[in-house]
């Protein structure tokens, strides 16, 4: 049971949240011209990193809002959470992780 700091509500148990996998993937707006391969990359391919991961969560059983987190996928430690649209407060150079 992770303890996740919702940027709007504060720390809450993981059971209140819904996972959204990798963050900062923009849906391609003009996708008609994309090749099948490029489109598949958007739909299916994910970093799935061992180490730091910028990922999305939704506080489903709380404020209902989506936000982002930087979490270590090995230790489960959450380094930071931040609102959708904001930059990740932790860069790839910190903690030696892979972003």
């Amino acid at each position: 049971m992770l303890l996740i700091e919702c940027p709007h509500c504060g720390p809450r148990n993981e059971s209140e949240f819904h996972y959204g996998d990798q963050a900062h993937i923009a849906r391609p707006e003009h996708n008609e011209g994309m090749s099948d391969q490029e489109w598949a990359e958007y739909v299916y391919l994910r970093e799935n990193p061992k180490g730091l991961f910028r990922e999305r969560w939704c506080h489903t059983a709380g404020c209902g809002r989506w936000f982002n987190a930087v979490r270590d996928t090995v230790s489960s430690r959450i380094m930071a959470t931040y609102k959708t649209g904001e930059e990740a407060p932790i860069g790839a150079d910190q903690e030696g992780g892979q972003l």
Binding site: G20, R27, R56, C58, G64, W66, T84
Partner: peptide
């Protein structure tokens, strides 16, 4: 509802 919220909020 989750699907709609996700696209609305994140895209």
């Amino acid at each position: 509802l989750d699907h709609l919220e996700e696209y609305l909020q994140t895209e």
